[in-house]
């Protein structure tokens, strides 16, 4: 075979509710877990910085303000879609301290690549 040379130039969700508050899907969570609400819109999360403590359970509750977005963190093994009219709940108990980035995993337009945030886990 000849050589080959390449040169480079170069969750859980629920059905939407129209006129009522977003529905919340049943997800098994620690009832004592703190709920952290996070909104997504072109091209930002709010808050974009989420501070957690190791071993302390929380529930991340995501909602979109405009269109479908996603959230993916490879380090924390999280990948969910965030759909308008729905609430996506992610139970999370950080196992170790560190800084973990997340980003939008559903292409949402010019600026999508900059839609990201960070979860900081510290004692």
């Amino acid at each position: 075979m000849g050589s080959l040379l390449a040169v480079l130039l170069a969750a859980a969700t629920s059905p939407a509710a129209t006129a009522s508050p977003p529905a919340v899907a049943p997800v098994a969570v620690d009832p004592a877990a703190r709920v952290i609400k996070v909104t997504a819109k072109k091209f930002e999360y709010s808050p974009a910085l989420i501070e957690l403590k190791p071993g302390v359970p929380v529930v991340l509750e995501f909602a979109s303000l405009d269109r479908k977005h996603g959230l993916k963190s490879t380090d924390l093994d999280i990948e969910v879609e965030i759909v308008p009219g729905e609430v996506t709940r992610v139970p999370l108990t950080p196992g170790k301290a560190g800084k973990f980035t997340f980003h939008c995993s559903v292409f949402c337009g010019s600026g999508h690549e900059d839609m990201e945030g960070q979860i900081v886990v510290a004692p």
Partner: peptide, 16 residues
Amino acid sequence: KSGLGGGDEFFFVQLS
């Protein structure tokens, strides 16, 4: 790389 090889060797360009 364009100056390398002969025979079955080849290269292509990827632009993106």
